[in-house]
Deep mutational scan, measured.
Amino acid sequence: KEQQNAFYEILHLPNLTEEQRNGFIQSLKDDPSVSKEILAEAKKLNDAQA
């Protein structure tokens, strides 16, 4: 469930490039146990690119 939530949120971050988004999603698939950390990174990058 946590992985699904992170997946959904990353898909809807407006400021990520397609490449960045795909990278985060691939990381989620590779290691779902760190989905919280991956989501935090994605949000940080999204904010930095706002």
Score class of each variant (00 low, 15 high):
K1V: 15
K1P: 14
K1M: 15
K1C: 03
K1W: 02
K1N: 15
E2P: 14
E2A: 08
E2H: 07
E2V: 14
E2N: 07
E2R: 04
E2T: 07
E2M: 04
Q3K: 09
Q3I: 07
Q3L: 06
Q3H: 08
Q3G: 08
Q3C: 03
Q4F: 11
Q4A: 12
Q4C: 08
Q4V: 14
Q4W: 12
Q4H: 15
Q4K: 06
N5R: 08
N5Q: 10
N5W: 04
N5S: 11
N5H: 12
N5E: 11
A6R: 04
A6F: 13
A6D: 13
A6I: 08
A6S: 07
A6C: 06
F7N: 05
F7M: 11
F7V: 13
F7A: 07
F7T: 11
F7Y: 08
F7D: 08
Y8V: 12
Y8N: 12
Y8S: 08
E9W: 07
E9A: 04
E9Q: 07
E9S: 03
E9K: 03
E9C: 05
I10K: 01
I10S: 01
I10R: 00
I10W: 01
I10M: 03
I10E: 03
L11F: 06
L11Q: 13
L11H: 13
L11A: 14
L11Y: 09
L11M: 04
L11R: 04
H12E: 11
H12V: 09
H12W: 06
H12K: 13
H12I: 14
H12Y: 14
H12Q: 14
H12N: 09
L13R: 00
L13E: 01
L13A: 02
L13V: 01
L13T: 01
L13W: 02
L13F: 09
P14I: 10
P14G: 08
P14Q: 14
P14T: 13
P14L: 10
P14M: 12
P14K: 12
P14F: 08
N15Q: 04
N15S: 06
N15I: 01
N15C: 07
N15M: 07
N15K: 04
N15W: 12
N15A: 10
L16H: 00
L16T: 00
L16W: 00
L16P: 00
L16R: 00
T17G: 03
T17L: 05
T17D: 06
T17A: 03
T17E: 03
T17F: 04
E18G: 05
E18K: 09
E18A: 05
E18T: 07
E18R: 09
E18P: 11
E18F: 11
E18Y: 06
E19R: 08
E19D: 10
E19W: 07
E19M: 09
E19C: 07
Q20N: 02
Q20M: 03
Q20L: 02
Q20G: 01
Q20A: 03
Q20W: 02
Q20F: 01
Q20S: 02
Q20D: 03
Q20K: 01
Q20I: 02
R21T: 05
R21E: 01
R21F: 03
R21W: 02
N22Q: 10
N22F: 10
N22I: 09
N22P: 00
N22G: 07
N22S: 13
N22W: 10
N22Y: 08
G23I: 15
G23C: 06
G23S: 11
G23A: 13
G23H: 07
G23P: 01
G23D: 13
G23T: 11
F24Y: 05
F24S: 01
F24G: 00
F24V: 01
F24A: 03
F24E: 00
I25P: 00
I25E: 02
I25W: 03
I25Q: 04
I25T: 06
I25H: 09
I25D: 01
I25L: 08
Q26P: 00
Q26K: 05
Q26C: 06
Q26D: 07
Q26N: 12
Q26Y: 03
Q26R: 04
S27K: 06
S27A: 11
S27L: 14
S27R: 06
S27P: 01
S27H: 11
S27Y: 08
L28R: 00
L28Q: 01
L28P: 00
L28K: 00
L28Y: 03
L28E: 01
L28C: 04
L28A: 03
L28S: 02
K29Y: 15
K29C: 06
K29H: 09
K29Q: 13
K29G: 04
K29E: 06
K29V: 08
D30G: 11
D30S: 09
D30Y: 08
D30R: 07
D30H: 12
D31K: 13
D31T: 09
D31S: 08
D31Q: 10
D31W: 13
D31L: 05
P32R: 06
P32I: 14
P32G: 08
P32C: 04
P32W: 14
P32H: 10
P32S: 07
P32V: 06
P32M: 14
S33L: 09
S33P: 05
S33D: 12
S33G: 10
V34W: 14
V34N: 11
V34P: 03
V34C: 06
V34R: 13
V34Q: 13
V34H: 13
V34G: 14
S35G: 05
S35A: 12
S35W: 15
S35L: 13
K36I: 15
K36Q: 08
K36F: 14
K36S: 06
K36G: 12
K36E: 10
E37I: 14
E37Q: 12
E37C: 07
E37V: 11
E37P: 05
E37W: 07
E37L: 15
E37G: 09
I38S: 02
I38V: 15
I38G: 01
L39G: 02
L39P: 00
L39E: 04
L39W: 03
L39C: 02
L39D: 01
L39A: 08
L39Q: 04
A40V: 10
A40T: 15
A40K: 12
A40P: 02
A40M: 13
A40H: 10
A40D: 07
E41H: 09
E41S: 14
A42T: 00
A42C: 02
A42M: 01
A42N: 00
A42K: 00
A42V: 02
A42L: 01
K43R: 03
K43G: 05
K43V: 08
K43E: 05
K43F: 05
K44F: 10
K44G: 06
K44M: 10
K44C: 05
K44N: 09
K44H: 10
L45Y: 04
L45D: 02
N46K: 01
N46P: 00
N46D: 03
D47E: 11
D47A: 10
D47F: 09
D47N: 07
D47H: 12
D47Q: 15
D47R: 07
A48L: 15
A48G: 05
A48Q: 12
A48F: 11
A48M: 10
A48N: 10
A48C: 11
Q49V: 06
Q49A: 09
Q49M: 07
Q49D: 04
Q49E: 05
Q49S: 06
A50D: 12
A50Q: 15
A50M: 08
A50P: 08
A50Y: 06
